[in-house]
């Protein structure tokens, strides 16, 4: 990369939603940053915590209600089990183009040197402990810690 600035480039990505479709932008952006030799870390907060929660990461859903791009009428998408169905369908489509699942993406991120953090407040709110999270999460940090770490970084909120 051309030297845009003296210090290395850095991105801080905040993942605040737990839907499958909402988790991917954060994960892909972080991965793309690492591939471009940009330092990256992801802060999982609120529903985004689901993405790094051991019991949830393999069952992320897609909520199509209120989604104008949904191929189905909103009325139907509100039926019970629809978000799980949409999630499975999307997972299948992703597998078809050989896109790794969320858990594998987290592993790739970790191996490529991106740092993953969980939000302390959200952890307390959802009554989760560090042991409930996937091992790739480096630390549970506060919003203040986040700002300290994000110094000099571009911040992306998803």
């Amino acid at each position: 990369m051309a030297n845009i600035a003296e210090q290395p480039r850095k991105v801080a990505i905040i993942c605040s939603h737990g839907g499958l479709d909402e988790a991917y932008p954060a994960l892909i952006l972080a991965n793309a940053a690492r591939q471009a030799d940009i330092e990256a870390f992801v802060f999982f907060t609120f529903w985004g915590l689901d993405v790094v929660t051991e019991e949830k990461v393999d069952h992320l859903h897609v909520n199509m209600v209120g989604n104008a791009s949904s191929p189905m009428p909103t009325m139907l998408m509100g039926l019970p089990g629809m978000e799980a169905f949409a999630g499975k369908k999307m997972t299948k489509q992703m597998a078809e183009i050989d896109l790794p699942g969320p858990r594998e993406m987290l592993k790739i991120l970790d191996e490529s040197g991106a740092k993953l953090y969980a939000c302390e407040l959200a952890m307390r709110m959802f009554k989760r402990e560090k042991k409930d999270l996937v091992p790739e999460v480096a630390e549970v940090i506060t919003a203040g810690d986040f700002y300290d770490m994000a110094e000099g970084a571009q911040i992306i909120f998803t």
Binding site: H59, T91, K92, A95, G101
Partner: peptide, 16 residues
């Protein structure tokens, strides 16, 4: 449908 991701024996065409 679902999470199972069968390991492709032969690498498919590049993702995107």
């Amino acid at each position: 449908l679902g999470i199972e991701r069968p390991a492709p024996k032969q690498l498919p065409a590049p993702a995107c």
